[in-house]
């Protein structure tokens, strides 16, 4: 059995144990509902940041419209569960499909743009999605969509998060993923090597958008109400911050980023007037001392500690 597979299995086992422990703590009420809610938010944020990392970190395409795709998934999801009474899982899948399809449609023309031009184009598209939703009275317009059934719980989020991590990790380690990384490193060189850059850029973008759609579905069914104001460009920034804080090009990093950002925000809930000031300072200081993010390009499975544990296990 090669090391990669083994790492997968170990991580899976670790995930299951973590899930069991957290779920146990939640059902015995040791983790109260506020922190349970925050665990759910962390899970959703992990899905968002890992899928954004696929676009920004691994494929090197600077996207600032991730919240827009989340909005699409969220609204498609709630329309299906509320108006059409479809099961939650179907709504999630449909949300992912819709967001992915939109990502494909948008990605095809815009991914020709480079760097900051792509950034502003995607930011604009995210805002356009939000403004369009705001003007559709069928889904409540600016006031938001009310009366959503509460389906999301910790188990749903955790399991979908594990699936997301697994899919994206395997994508990155596949030949497609390597093509994406090649594009990030040098697009012209990649093209010269015979990689169809447009195809892989659109592929990564579509996939990232689809997972954002799933995250949106989970998000929407957790809060009873969703409104377009939850999906502004500022929330896209927030996901970007998670990715960069953790390290572009590291899945472990995205998980850590999502965790740290959510945790800081929750822990500072008692000081609303200082929360954002402290958050801003943490952000700036972190970039000073670790401009490449907490994990840089590293994965936990590649680190010394992890390897040594593995080795010891083998002896």
């Amino acid at each position: 059995m090669n090391l990669l597979r083994k790492n997968d299995l170990i991580m899976l086992a670790f995930g299951i144990v973590l899930f069991a422990v957290l779920q146990g703590l939640i059902s015995t009420k040791i983790i109260g509902s506020f922190w349970e809610l925050n665990l759910i938010i962390i899970g959703i944020n992990v899905i968002m940041s890992v899928s954004l990392n696929l676009i920004n970190g691994y494929t090197g395409q600077f996207s600032l419209g991730h919240a827009g795709f989340m909005a699409v998934g969220a609204y498609v999801g709630v329309v299906l569960t509320t108006f059409f009474k479809l099961p939650f899982i179907v709504a999630l899948a449909a949300g992912a499909l819709a967001a992915g399809f939109l990502g494909f449609l948008i990605g095809l023309p815009t991914l020709r743009l480079r760097g900051d031009y792509l950034a502003i184009a995607t930011l604009g598209l995210g805002e356009i999605i939000r403004i369009v939703i705001m003007n559709i009275d069928y889904v409540g317009g600016a006031a938001g969509f009310q009366g959503i059934t509460h389906y999301t719980n910790f188990a749903w989020v955790f399991i979908i998060m594990l699936i997301t991590l697994f899919v994206i990790k395997n994508f990155i380690n596949s030949s497609h993923g390597r093509a994406c990384i090649a594009i990030r490193e040098n697009e012209i060189a990649a093209e010269a090597m015979g990689i169809n850059t447009t195809k892989y850029k659109v592929m990564a973008f579509t996939m990232g958008a689809a997972f954002a759609g799933i995250a949106g579905g989970l998000f929407a069914h957790n809060f009873y109400i969703i409104s377009p104001s939850s999906f502004t460009f500022l929330s896209s920034f927030n996901y970007l911050i998670m990715v960069v804080m953790g390290g572009m090009g590291s899945i472990t990093g995205s998980i850590a980023g999502a965790f740290v950002v959510t945790f800081i925000s929750a822990a500072l809930a008692n000081w609303p007037e200082f929360r954002m000031i402290i958050y801003a300072l943490v952000l700036i200081l972190l970039m000073f001392y670790r401009p490449q993010g907490l994990f840089g390009y590293m994965e936990i499975t590649n680190m010394g500690i992890f390897r040594r544990i593995l080795k010891r296990g083998r002896e």
Partner: peptide, 21 residues
Amino acid sequence: HAPRISILITAIGVSFFLEYA
């Protein structure tokens, strides 16, 4: 000399700081 993206994040941080300070 850091990656451009980290300066961008710093700029967002400065923005939040100025707003909320």
